[in-house]
Design a protein around this nucleic acid. Structure first.
Lengths: 231, 231
DNA sequence: CCAAAAGTGTTTCCGATACACCCATGA
DNA sequence: TCATGGGTGTATCGGAAACACTTTTGG
């Protein structure tokens, strides 16, 4: 018991909320808790800040994420810090939450790794969560809805090649509204963020849709000047 | 030295960034540090979370603010959490920053209280700051610029009665741009957020401007439905 | 040939922008 | 009477929204 302080200190943890998009559904990554408290319930990947080796909170979040899911190189943004008394029965715990969007197709593989207690859940089928993670999830969803208005989140959530209908559907799911197909396409095309490919959807029982990919170079250009992404 | 833990823990502090608006300038409240580290430099009001008595981080921020400035009933929003190693020479310290907008006229008085080491600084004349508070200030200013687009910050920053020119000037200062007088007035009037008073500016060496106040009731209505505040 | 989704233009409306002069007041 | 900011309207432009039919493909 070597660490002693003059005044009591809270524990500091990080939590990672990962969003993915697949088969028309927005998904979130959860981990089944193997120990108390909340054993058997689901929670976000996360853990304690290591004061000696984590140079920043974000690094701690990435480290914990890798330890629990095997995922690396995930770009995360800070979401909010939760610190109400009683949120962790083990004692006063402050949690800094980060969130990220990722291409589920690219990362699906790792589900079979040693971290097989990690699982993607459809956002409408999230099970009971540990701690105050339901509240954290709600905060993250609200943030995502805000973010979609000024950043092209499709870039991060969709696979390399996708159809315009898939992109539109992503927006509809996140925003919770229906969008007009023609207006949506007009708007998207005008941004010049997409590259039209000479490839088409395969294996569908109807007319195949053209595939597109994002123009990463133009994206970087626009990002530096700031741009609007209302749909 | 009674508090002992199995693993090391960081200190957890809160910082309060208070913005005010007065005499055409955006201001921020700072406190002169009386002790080490950074003795003599300026910093935001703040202090340590009291694990035993602060039921939430926000309460801690409000408590520290009152202790150091005498200000109460300040509505604060969480800004960001800063936790890079090295930001406090005394040891690993995580700071949860909150910010608030307030009517400087209402609060000016307390400057003469026991917390007379607190002082309002014009945003363009901020002195050297302790810790990483310059970075925190920049983050808060960025947030303010974002907030102005979808919330009527004049409501919180201006005194009860104000002229349209004062309101316009506030927007110009925060956004860092010039606005067209007629277009600004048209836009503002159309929101129906202002009540036209039968009172006029006094003591100015030119035509006196009409005074307005915000329609708080309509504000609450709009807030619940979400509204746009581009100017 | 049918079902299912892909793909495609035009019109209307409203908000954003640009712009210049007269008015009231105190010094 | 002059200097200073207060106050007002119109015309243009561009993006947002509404809206329906034809095309392609596999079953």
């Amino acid at each position: 018991m070597p660490y002693t302080y003059e005044y009591p200190r809270p524990s500091l943890t990080v939590d990672c909320i990962l969003f993915g998009f697949d088969e028309g559904d927005l998904k979130v990554l959860l981990i089944r808790r193997g120990g108390e408290p909340f054993k058997g319930l689901w929670a976000f990947p996360g853990g304690f800040l290591d004061v000696d080796t984590d140079p920043s909170i974000e690094v701690a979040a990435k480290r914990e994420l890798e330890e629990e899911t095997g995922l690396t190189n995930v770009f995360m943004e800070q979401l909010y810090t939760f610190g109400d008394v009683g949120r962790d029965p083990r004692g006063r715990t402050i949690s800094v939450a980060y969130y990220a969007l990722l291409k589920l197709a690219d990362y699906k593989v790792q589900a079979g790794s040693d971290a097989s207690h990690a699982q993607w859940f459809n956002i409408s089928e999230v099970p009971e969560l540990a701690f105050d993670h339901a509240k954290i999830l709600q905060t993250a969803l609200d943030r995502l809805k805000g973010k979609v208005r000024y950043q092209p989140i499709g870039f991060e959530l969709l696979p390399e090649k996708f159809t315009l209908s898939e992109l539109q559907h992503l927006y509809e799911v996140v925003l919770g509204t229906d969008l007009d197909k023609r207006n949506f396409r007009k708007k998207i095309q005008k941004m010049n963020l997409l590259v039209e490919l000479e490839e088409w959807q395969a294996g569908v029982p109807h007319r195949a849709a053209r595939l597109y990919r994002f123009d990463r170079q133009r994206y970087e250009e626009l990002k530096s000047h700031g741009f609007n992404f209302e749909v």
